[in-house]
């Protein structure tokens, strides 16, 4: 099938899809007129029931916590898949951890980049930690905080060499931290069952002030576990890809 044939078939099929889409669009209530009962119902009761002022995180980790367990395990499996797929193939042997690009004409990292990366590593770690532990007050949460923590580790790679990055995030510790994160979330749910409540029901005591860190029960705890799991997953992915690029060479 030639490329232009492919293009014509796509245009015809796309026109059909667009017709169906526009037909479906005519039944929507229009932009800005959200009618559904679920959203306003949750908004009415969320702050009083969970003592969390961040309603989105309350939904993610309390009302629809089971969906979030599923999403987190998708993340876990995807990171594991990257590690498995990128393992060494037959006929490829790993050289010792020496910088392979030493003979290529690569300009050295400018000192401005290294200094800025070094200066920003600490604040980014702090910001990521703050995001991951304040899910119940502001627009923060485990997912955003975890990704920011992973970005801090990439800053370490930018400000130094790959070997420094490897020393800061050895593969077995990253794997263990990711497993602790994923397992911790599931364990919180199971311990609710052990107490005779439904799976993932909020069982820690709710505090007095809505939106404080110590109130809102298990939401803060779950968000923390999600944060470290997401951070470890992304550090694992980036570390695997970096190792592929820099260390492994086709045998011989």
């Amino acid at each position: 099938m030639t490329p232009s044939q492919r293009r014509w078939i796509f245009l015809v099929a796309g026109a059909g899809l667009a017709a169906f889409y526009l037909w479906g669009l005519s039944g929507l209530p229009g932009f800005g007129n959200y009618p559904g009962p679920y959203g306003p119902a949750i908004l009415r009761i969320a702050v009083a029931q969970t003592n969390a002022t961040g309603v989105v995180s309350a939904i993610n980790f309390d009302y629809r916590g089971f969906d979030t367990v599923g999403e987190e395990f998708i993340l876990f499996v995807a990171a594991t898949g990257v590690a498995i797929v990128l393992r060494m193939l037959r006929g490829e042997r790993e050289r010792s951890a020496v910088d392979e690009a030493a003979d290529r004409n690569v300009p050295p990292t400018s000192s401005a980049v290294r200094m800025v990366a070094l200066l920003f590593t600490g604040p980014v770690v702090l910001a990521g930690w703050w995001l991951a532990s304040h899910a119940q007050t502001d627009p923060s949460g485990g997912f955003q905080g975890g990704v920011m923590l992973a970005t801090a580790f990439v800053l370490i790679y930018l400000s130094g060499e790959f070997l420094v990055f490897k020393r800061f995030s050895p593969a077995d510790i990253t794997d263990a931290v990711e497993a602790v994160g994923a397992g911790g979330y599931a364990a919180i749910g199971v311990s609710a069952v052990a107490m005779g409540l439904a799976y993932l029901k909020d069982f820690l005591p709710l505090g007095q002030v809505p939106g404080a860190v110590s109130s809102s029960g298990t939401i803060a705890l779950i968000s923390f576990f999600v944060g470290i799991e997401v951070a470890a997953a992304f550090i694992l992915i980036v570390a695997e890809l970096l190792e592929q690029t820099l260390l492994i060479r086709q045998g011989g």
Partner: peptide
């Protein structure tokens, strides 16, 4: 306020699709 349920869906969506994209890229390398 705007609907929080769809925001919760989109939030986890963004992070998880990035990991799946990384998996696809590793398939491309292989």
């Amino acid at each position: 306020a705007v609907d929080p349920v769809v925001q919760a869906c989109a939030l986890t969506d963004v992070v998880v699709e990035a990991a799946v994209t990384a998996l696809l890229l590793s398939f491309a390398i292989q």
